Amino acid sequence: MRAFIFPGQGSQAVGMGSALSAASPHAREVFQEVDEALGQKLSKLMAEGPEDQLTLTANAQPAIMANAIAVLRVLEKEAGLSLADKADFVAGHSLGEYSALCAAGAIDLATTAKLLRTRGEAMQAAVPVGVGAMAALLGVDVEKAQAIADAAAEGQVCTVANDNDPSQVVISGHREAIERAIGMAKEMGAKRALLLPVSAPFHCPLMQPAADAMAEALGGVAIQGALVPLYANVTAAPAGDPELIRALLVEQVTGMVRWRESVLAMQAAGVTSFVELGGKVLGGMVKRIAADAAVISVVSMDDIEALAKTL
C-alpha cells in the first residue's frame, strides 16, 4: 500500500516551482489558477522572491500547496497516473493537510488557495509579534518534550505542537515560557533545543482566534468526499467524511500535529511506500519513524519521471 504525503511550512524557497513551470504547461496552469484565486502574482514571488515576503505565513502556505499540486498535476497529466489509483491514503503536515485534501479531490484548487491565505493571515493575526514562539527539542520523545514544556509553563501556554519523529518534537506557546524550556531542556534530557524562525506560535491554544476564523471560513466551503482517506493530524486516524474533515481542519489550528503517530498508523494499516510531493522534508522524518518503509520525495521533472517508472 502507498501513501502520498504533503509538506508543511518551512518547505518554501525562492525559485520553487520555476523549473517545473518552465518544463510543463500543466504546472503553469496550477500556478496561474492560484494567482487568479488570490488576486496576486504569487508565482512571481515564488520564482523571484524576495525571500522575506515569501516566508510570510500568508504567502508561504498557499505557495507550498501550489508547488505540491503542480507536481501532482504533472504526474497525472503527463505521466498518466491517477492519485486515486496509485495512493491508498493521503496525509499532510499542518498546512500540508490542505494540499492532501486538494490532491484527493475534497477541496478544489482555488478554494484551497483562498483557505490557506485566510489561515495564514489568521494565524499571524492571532498573537502579536513577539508574544509567542516555537522551539525544536532534539533527542527527546513526545512524553519528555511535554514534561519539559509543563515544567517551563509557569502559568503560561507551553505545549507540544508537532510530534515530528522519535528524535524531534516542537513546542509552542508564550515566548517567555519557550525560552525557559530551551534553558532547562538539556538538563532534562534533550540533546539540543533551538528557537525556530517562525512569526507565530502555531498549534497551541494561543491560536484559538485563528481556529475561530477558520471555522467561519470553512463553514462556507463545499467539501467533497475524499477519493482516498486522509490521515488527519489531530487524530492520526483516517477521515473521509466531509463534515468530519471540516471539524478536524478547525481543530488542527490549535491541536498537536501527530505526524509520528500518523506514519506509524499508516504503516500499521499496510502502507509500505510513502511518496512526498513538493518537498524533501517529510521523507527524512518518515525514515526515522519507519526505517523499513520505501520513501521517495518528488519535486523536479526528473523526480516525476523517475517516480512514474516505479508506480
Results as ranks from 00 to 15, higher is better:
Val90Glu: 01
Ala135His: 05
Ala110Cys: 11
Leu116Pro: 00
Gly92Lys: 12
Val90Cys: 05
Glu97Lys: 12
Gly132Ile: 01
Gln124Lys: 14
Thr118Tyr: 09
Ala147Gly: 11
Leu137Asn: 12
Gly96Leu: 07
Ser94Tyr: 01
Met123Glu: 02
Ala113Gly: 08
Gln156Ser: 11
Val160Gln: 03
Ile148Gln: 03
Asp85Ser: 07
Asp150Met: 10
Pro128Val: 10
Leu138His: 11
Ala125Val: 09
Ala106Glu: 04
Lys144Arg: 13
Lys114Cys: 11
Leu101Gln: 02
Ala161His: 00
Val129Gly: 15
Ala133Asn: 00
Thr112Gly: 13
Val140Ser: 12
Arg117Met: 12
Ala135Ser: 11
Ser94Asp: 02
Gly130Thr: 07
Gly92Arg: 11
Cys102His: 07
Gly92Phe: 03
Ala100His: 04
His93Asp: 00
Ala104Phe: 03
Gly130Asp: 06
Ala149Trp: 02
Glu97Gly: 06
Leu138Met: 14
Leu95Ile: 11
Val127Tyr: 06
Glu121Pro: 10
Val131Trp: 15
Val142Cys: 15
Ser99Lys: 05
Ala104Val: 06
Asp88Ala: 13
Phe89His: 03
Ala136Ser: 12
Thr112Asn: 05
Ile148Asn: 05
Glu154Leu: 13
Thr118Gly: 04
Lys86His: 11
Ala113Lys: 07
Glu97Cys: 06
Cys158Thr: 05
Phe89Tyr: 11
Ala147Asp: 05
Val90Lys: 05
Gly92Met: 06
Ala125Trp: 14
Lys144Trp: 13
Asp150His: 09
Asp141Gly: 15
Val129Ala: 15
Gly96Asp: 02
Cys102Pro: 00
Pro128Tyr: 15
Lys86Phe: 04
Ser99Phe: 02
Ala91Ser: 10
Ala110Tyr: 11
Ala122Asp: 04
Glu154Ser: 08
Ala103Ser: 02
Pro128Leu: 11
Ala125Ser: 14
Ala113Phe: 10
Val131Tyr: 15
Gly92Asp: 01
Ala103Gln: 04
Leu101Pro: 01
Gly132Asn: 10
Ala84Pro: 03
Ala106Gln: 02
Ala103Thr: 03
Asp88Met: 14
Ala104Gly: 04
Asp108Asn: 13
Ala147Thr: 12
Leu138Cys: 08
Ala104Ser: 11
Gly132Asp: 14
Tyr98Gln: 02
Ala91Cys: 07
Arg117Trp: 14
Ala113Ser: 12
Val90Arg: 05
Lys114Arg: 09
Cys158Arg: 00
Asp88Arg: 10
Glu154Gly: 01
Ala87Val: 00
Ala153Trp: 01
Asp141Leu: 07
Tyr98Ile: 06
Gly155Ala: 03
Ala152Ile: 03
Ala104Asn: 04
Ala153Arg: 08
Ser99His: 02
Ala135Ile: 09
Gly132Lys: 01
Leu95Gly: 07
Cys158Pro: 00
